[in-house]
Design a protein around this nucleic acid. Structure first.
Length: 474
DNA sequence: TGAAATGTTGGGGCG
DNA sequence: ACGCCCCAACATTTC
């Protein structure tokens, strides 16, 4: 309800019908994944409560549903906050035309970005391709992010009885949310339930907690998956429970000084990466499926379903990779450092197409976001704009020793390894037999041997990369 | 927001 | 005192 420009506009204009449309029709290939749907259910539920049960839910093609609703209630206007997925940009453009043709004014607003993608351009009016100048020059030099808007002081929602009279009752409130059928039919959501509080209030509390504790030491601490130094705001941001403008300005006024300026700067630049991803997607609608560096379209990816399944299931035999993949499966989330490690492992050590990783994350992450997901997979695969060079191959064991030295994160998600001493927990396959036995670990039964040799597979990746002809686009 | 190979430097042991 | 070797620590280069 806070910093919601479309709602502010609607509330000023008169009585409001708040609507959410689950549009799997136009979303097609990028319909929401399972974890996202789970989050959405609870998020809508929280929103509906804030609206005293007056949220209207629809499911289907927004291009027919919304104009029909507007006619039915004789709406004086339709307003919404913009989304930037290519299918939504296209759909909403059509939607505006249809509404205007039938005489219903329609307008969209910016409720989810600090800077509009079309407003941050280089001198020559083309989009940035490198993050640092994009953010340091393009964004910071542009207008400062707007202050967040307050919750409308008066919100006159059309009431249940009125909707009932129009035959909309079964689609309102909790019944309407349930009718969207967003929750899993088999109960795999226990871990998610445990991990997350959902909704606008929860988002605010998480931000407050982060600014109280986590942000001090963020720049360094954010690299260590067992520490509490990340904000965990990504799913709240994705579902619009909190806006980047709220986060930006709250962080600015958190009174960080005396050496913590770097932490603030680093946190803001992470919001910058989110903006950069949206700009990349906006200017490259094929980002989710086509490598920005086109030579990677000819990369000799391997198809090896068993290795992919081992990666998905957290059964690769490389503890940090497995811990990350199990965190993802259990909680719908993965620490950013670990996302890089499992991504590098899939794409480089297993030579698997980044699309496979992208698809799995899309289905499992509660913060799955087309812009961030696509841009980040291209980044780690080395085929994107301003991406990590392909030859930058993470060694998952080295990363583990460096960023989870005490094995705290590993033990959290790999209880079968908990009794291994720190020296061997990062690479059980290197442990002497008696150490394994003493820790109750058996590489033949309760924890797998590595699906690939890290050293050898790294060399194969580099060789495969060398076979590509140098790109002209980069 | 790499890792590994290779190169350089400098201290200490030793003849 | 000196040269030589070894090797750790650090720096640079390469993938």
């Amino acid at each position: 309800m806070g910093d919601n420009p479309a709602l502010v506009e609607a509330a000023q204009a008169g009585s409001v019908i708040p609507v959410y449309i689950l549009d799997d029709v136009n979303a097609a290939e990028w319909a929401m994944g399972g974890a996202s749907r789970w989050w959405l259910h609870h998020s809508l539920s929280a929103l509906n409560q804030s609206l005293q049960g007056r949220l209207l839910l629809l499911k289907g093609d927004a291009l027919t549903l919304l104009p029909a609703l507007a006619r039915q209630v004789n709406a004086s206007q339709v307003v919404w906050n913009r989304c930037y997925e290519p299918w939504r940009v296209q759909r909403d453009k059509q939607l505006k035309e249809i509404l205007q043709q039938q005489g219903t004014p329609a307008r969209s607003f910016n409720g989810s970005l600090l800077w509009e993608p079309w407003q941050v351009l280089k001198e020559d009016q083309t989009p940035y391709k490198v993050f640092t100048p994009y953010f340091r020059r393009g964004c910071i030099k542009a207008a400062a992010p707007a202050l967040p808007l307050p919750v409308p002081s008066r919100l006159d929602c059309m009431d249940i009885e009125a909707m009932s009279a129009m035959n909309l009752l079964p689609l309102t409130g909790e019944a309407g949310i349930n009718a969207l059928d967003l929750l899993p039919h088999i109960a795999w959501d226990g871990g998610l339930q445990q991990r997350w509080q959902i909704g606008e209030q929860a988002a605010k509390q998480r931000l407050a907690r982060f600014l109280d504790n986590g942000i001090r030491g963020y720049k360094e601490g954010r690299n260590f998956p067992a520490r509490e130094n990340v904000s965990g705001l990504s799913p709240h941001l994705h579902f619009g429970e909190i806006s980047p403008r709220q986060i930006w300005h709250e962080a600015l006024s958190a009174g960080l000084s005396g050496g913590f300026e770097n932490d603030l700067d680093c946190f803001q630049s992470e919001l910058g990466w989110r903006e950069f991803s949206y700009a990349l997607l906006y200017h490259n609608p094929s980002l989710p499926r086509r490598a920005i560096q086109s030579r990677f379209e000819h990369f000799p990816w391997l198809k090896r379903p068993p290795a992919l399944r081992a990666w998905q299931g957290g059964e690769t035999g490389i503890p940090l990779v497995d811990a990350g993949m199990r965190e993802l499966w259990q909680t719908g989330y993965m620490h950013n450092r670990v996302r890089m490690v499992v991504g590098s492992f899939l794409v480089k050590n297993l030579l698997t197409h980044w699309h496979d990783g992208e698809d799995w994350f899309w289905d499992c992450l509660v913060d799955a976001d087309l812009a961030s997901n696509s841009a980040s997979w291209q980044w780690i695969a080395g085929c994107g704009a301003d991406a990590a060079p392909y030859f930058r191959v993470f060694n998952a064991v080295t990363q583990s020793e460096k960023f989870d030295e005490e094995g705290e994160y590993l033990r959290r998600y790999l209880p079968e390894l908990a009794k291994l001493p720190n020296k061997y927990i990062h690479a059980p396959f290197l442990a002497p037999d008696h150490v394994l036995r003493a820790a109750g670990v058996s590489l033949d039964s309760n924890y797998p041997r590595p699906v690939v040799d890290l050293k050898l597979s790294r060399e194969q990746a580099l060789a495969a990369f060398k076979s590509l002809t140098p790109g002209l686009d980069s």
